[in-house]
Design a protein around this nucleic acid. Sequence first.
DNA 1: ATACAGGATTCTGAATTCAAACTCTTACCG
DNA 2: CGGTAAGAGTTTGAATTCAGAATCCTGTAT
Lengths: 228, 228
Amino acid sequence: MPRPLERSDTRLINEVHERLREMIATGELLPDTRLFQERLAASLGVSRTPLREALLRLEREGLVYTVPGKGMFVQGLVPEQAGDLYQLRWIIEPFAARLACESATPEQLERIEAIQSKHEREYPVDVITAFKSNFDLHTSLVEQCPNRRMYEMLCDLWAHNSVLLMFGYYTHNVGAVSNMVAEHREIVDAFIARDCLAVEQLLKKHIEEASESLLKSLQGYKNTGREI
Amino acid sequence: MPRPLERSDTRLINEVHERLREMIATGELLPDTRLFQERLAASLGVSRTPLREALLRLEREGLVYTVPGKGMFVQGLVPEQAGDLYQLRWIIEPFAARLACESATPEQLERIEAIQSKHEREYPVDVITAFKSNFDLHTSLVEQCPNRRMYEMLCDLWAHNSVLLMFGYYTHNVGAVSNMVAEHREIVDAFIARDCLAVEQLLKKHIEEASESLLKSLQGYKNTGREI
DNA sequence: ATACAGGATTCTGAATTCAAACTCTTACCG
DNA sequence: CGGTAAGAGTTTGAATTCAGAATCCTGTAT
């Protein structure tokens, strides 16, 4: 009997959501940009219906905000929110990484090592690549977390966090990247050695430091809105 | 100058979302119920557009799931997911309660005491009221948490958790409610005494026990779908 | 010149329409 | 009798349309 192959989710909302996330994370859409639905939908080649649905997802993820009768805007950098995000990551991510480490397969360990090696080989790089690399590594540390809901929450936090990294951190203080690579290496080594508690502790410390560094660089940040 | 009064969000999506959450939490819509958009929209007195948008929110909250070309269904009780939810609450909720306790105002303390007293006075009660009471108390403990994103996450977790409580716990093991009331009293007393660390510890223990109790009662649970 | 009023224009929120996918029924064939 | 295929009827996903709100522009009065 031919296995009942499950069809993939071809709804436009997924493509649009993915694309908008990317546009925000890479700075193609700057903070406080007003998102005119007609134009934006046209530029993505879809109608307003799937666009609106994707925007609602992004709203829940904290990447855009709504002003009721007026429209939706790209969420800007509110230092206070940055603190909230890092606090959440600080609580959840190390825990998730420990769980992932406890149930990691050899293939997973190889994958993580590969990502970290690439990360190290390619440094120094442009901001976009460094950001992506960072994202990939943190994602790989938790993607085998057996608590799927926890994993999804972290993905959302990371999507939002990306915006902060792009605008507040790398652009103002790129030197800190080398430090980051070294810290990642420590964590990866612990992970591969299956020292789950060490992974948890190191990641916690890493996030603390990243948070401190970002919040410092956000001092006096002034964002400038723009329209598409 | 007349203060620029900010208009409230009157979008239908909010009403519909709220109402559907309630219908799921109270069991008006049972697990695995298929949600026919036309009929459901009509029964709520709106068109499919705001209904679909509300359903997408619920999907993200984990209360409904989508089968791509087929439709949306009320998320049933997967014991594994119940464990995931409690694990997340265990990590986040005690932390949030501690933060809330640290910055609580006297009015807030009064409010919590009032909710707990009511909770105690009204016991024993029907399942719906007990559930609501429980929800109110847990919500009140974290609603002053300065990390708003954390608070919102907990709201989502609680909305989903409500479904579990309604179907898996109270209905099978109502006796445990009295135990619950006593544990809540301990936590409330610590909160009012501003013993923030005790609040964190007690809540952690409380969630552990609730989780254990629920997972036990879910053993052998078999859910039965239904259509509206 | 500036502030305000009024109307044209644009945009959102919601309803409706449309096309494609899915489901259910029934009829036909092995 | 069981299985399969055709087609009618639903239902979804997406586009379009519509009404009301917000914005912008212009003209007038101070």
